[in-house]
Design a protein around this nucleic acid. Sequence first.
DNA 1: TTCAGTTTCGTTAACGTTACCGAGTTGCTG
DNA 2: CAGCAACTCGGTAACGTTAACGAAACTGAA
Lengths: 355, 355
Amino acid sequence: MNHKTDNKKIGIKEIAKLANVSIATVDRVLNNRKDVSEKTRARVQAIIKENNYQPNLYARALSVKNNLSFAVLIPKTSSQTGYWDLCLKGIKQGVEEFSTFGINIDIFLYDQEDVRTFTKMSDDVLTRNFNAVVIAPIFISETTVFLEECKKRKIETIFVNSDIKGSSSLGYIGPDLRSTGRLAANLTSYLVQDKSKLLILNIARGLQNYAYLNTKIEGYVDYLNAMNRDFEIVNIDIPSNNYDEIAIDLLRHVGEFNPDLIFVTNSRVSVVGRFFNEFRHIRKPHIIGFDFLNENVEFLANGMIDFLICQRPDKQGYLALNYLYRHFLLKEEKENFKPMPIDILTIENYLFYEN
Amino acid sequence: MNHKTDNKKIGIKEIAKLANVSIATVDRVLNNRKDVSEKTRARVQAIIKENNYQPNLYARALSVKNNLSFAVLIPKTSSQTGYWDLCLKGIKQGVEEFSTFGINIDIFLYDQEDVRTFTKMSDDVLTRNFNAVVIAPIFISETTVFLEECKKRKIETIFVNSDIKGSSSLGYIGPDLRSTGRLAANLTSYLVQDKSKLLILNIARGLQNYAYLNTKIEGYVDYLNAMNRDFEIVNIDIPSNNYDEIAIDLLRHVGEFNPDLIFVTNSRVSVVGRFFNEFRHIRKPHIIGFDFLNENVEFLANGMIDFLICQRPDKQGYLALNYLYRHFLLKEEKENFKPMPIDILTIENYLFYEN
DNA sequence: TTCAGTTTCGTTAACGTTACCGAGTTGCTG
DNA sequence: CAGCAACTCGGTAACGTTAACGAAACTGAA
């Protein structure tokens, strides 16, 4: 059962020799540039295919002295959640890694509670000459305007975190939102009995800017309704970032509704954990929320939160840059990226998360 | 909030100029070789640190024309489970990727039901001159003997899939087995009520060779006992690979015990799924098992299996080779690898698995 | 002082690919 | 047929690092 592997990698030089041309010509057909006749192009291509030539990406990366520059346009982290810090962490890893190739990456952080900072930043981006820009599209209409400008100037665009279907030039890197909602519902169905009361909580100031949350909620509700298990589902908005304010609202809603499970539709789930940690006399429901933030993990670890659904914001950020790198440098065509995995974290596996 | 990043990467050449030495000398201190005086070594090192020099790994990989060769020594896939196929898939990905660097990788597949094939293969490995060998240590005592020989010949060793603590030279790449057991118990606790009956199933011919399964079971049982929820737990071995034989045993045990949940301790969980798919009149318990195999996913998708706990065998295989690559070529020291993540798959997120 | 041996260091050719520069060829116009 | 553009193609220097080779400087003993 000894499986030998003696596939000596063939280089551009050998190809050239076999085709009886110079390496420059081989390079031209490889990168399908002009300045090569159809006849020789065909001949070289045949030999390339024949010998299963694979370019040495490292040599390529070493050789090319590009002056690519990318912009990253995402919210700055708020006082209420470290979510964007994670994304930024991934971005910075990419900045570090790709600076080796002379890629310059500038990061623009806008305030997700102030649309004017977004328009300001996006204007700034346009004054410089970027080859591509990574965008977290929070403000939908403003982003659409910005995308128009990018298109005119032939600046490639790619989304992270949420998608405006079909409007960026390079697509979207992030989780399927509807599926994350369905997954939450799936877990919910294990946690509670028939006829239970389920509370959906949307917590954040300026909720009108988080249109994508509705997709999650749809997935959640549709899944549960299809089960015919007589759940009573209530959807509540708490448009605040202040714990004390939120606590007051929570006190009222939880008191009135007395839910068996709370589904927090974003990363603010730690607030709910904190609430039940303080108000011990209130019956603690099951809790499901999002994202691997320190404050969330704390309540996962002490049993307050049952499940954390994770979309790896850091990986998202990194992958977006990685995608650009591959698009520009390695010239990989690649079908539009695979969707991000959706991870489930519990008290028993969170320690091994993050790879 | 504009965050500029203008860290021009400095090269070995600039370092040489700054230190007033040749690039060869810089190279010597970088790879701390001999043939350089303590004085200049210190000076160069200072300048390296000062300028935060980071070697260009791609240039290094391009330059070095090593003749490294690794061996991989894992079980061949049996008729009963595609588990090792997955691991092999990851290995092959590594073979492909690292052949660019002139690394030669030979794969030796032994029969996990026949210890003689293992000793035969491991002897074969020793006749050749490998720099390192990746081992899945199924046969503990035989592996230990083999490791002794490797140590004598200064062949590096690294484990995948399961560990014999402290006996390989480069450590272990794989999940923490006890934690996977605990995680299964954690999910179990959500799926069933107090006083439920839980059936632990160990299915495989030659079970005596799977000592590591006990670690999983310990984690599972300990976790549940600590909950004080009055579970009735039964642990059953079915030492067979034949479905008909297994079905007979299952029929008997399930009939007698009537479990509320079955925990299959390895990847053979699809057999149990098939069983309940055929015997519709028997009350189907919840089912938890391991590994992202096609046959398992099939029963996850149709609702037979509730949770699949995944240890990414393909990633394990790839990471093992990647680790060797980094150890030999990039000379990264790196603290002994992070543990593998432990993933939870349900009917709602399996589609997005595999990245 | 000489000379062999050792220690320390610099020069240079690779590694596989890219891209600039310029030389040869063809085709067309006047 | 001259002249000139357009099209093909080859030569070669770079990219940052490694390693083989040999030169220089130093050591110590005769």
